[in-house]
Simulated assay, not measured.
Amino acid sequence: MRARRLRAGLRGWGGVGAMAVVCALAALLALLLPAARSHHDGGTGGRGAARGGQARAGEECADPEKQTLSPSGADGPTIEAIRNREGGKRKLVVGVDQNSYRWGYRDPNGGTSGKLEGFDIDLVHRIAEDILGDPDAVQFKAIPTDQRIPAIRQGRVDMVVRTMTISCDRLRDVAFSAPYFRTGQQVLAPKSSPVTGYDDTLAGKRVCTAEGSTANAVLTAARKANELPASTDISTTVPNQLDCLVRLQLGRVDAVVTDGALAASQAAQDPTVELKGEPFTTDFYGVAMHRDADDLVRRVNRILVDYHEDTANGWQRSYGRWLSATLGRDPAASKPPTPLYLREN
Rank of each mutant, 00 (worst) to 15 (best):
R156S: 06
A142Q: 05
C23D: 12
A230N: 04
K335N: 04
I82C: 03
L323Q: 10
G110C: 09
S324G: 01
A221N: 10
Y319Q: 07
V300N: 05
A222C: 06
G46Y: 00
V207A: 09
V124T: 15
I166V: 15
V16P: 03
D295M: 10
A210D: 12
E278R: 12
E344A: 12
Q154G: 04
R298V: 07
M159D: 03
P135L: 00
A151M: 11
D254Q: 06
V187H: 01
G114P: 05
R247N: 12
A30S: 14
S100F: 01
S177V: 08
A255R: 01
G52K: 05
Y307C: 02
G118S: 05
V300D: 04
D41S: 11
Q54T: 13
R302H: 10
P77T: 12
D107P: 06
A215M: 02
A50N: 09
G204H: 08
L202M: 09
Q54I: 02
G204T: 13
S192W: 01
T68K: 00
K91I: 07
N226D: 15
D136Q: 14
P271H: 03
A151D: 13
R321K: 15
R162H: 10
F284N: 06
A288K: 09
Q249S: 08
R252I: 02
V93N: 02
A268I: 05
G43Y: 06
G14C: 09
I131H: 04
T209C: 14
I149L: 12
R298H: 04
T220V: 12
S167L: 00
R252Q: 14
D306L: 02
G17A: 14
V305A: 12
Y105H: 13
A222W: 06
A62Y: 02
T338G: 01
P179K: 07
R2N: 14
R206G: 04
A215Y: 05
T165M: 06
C244T: 12
G87D: 13
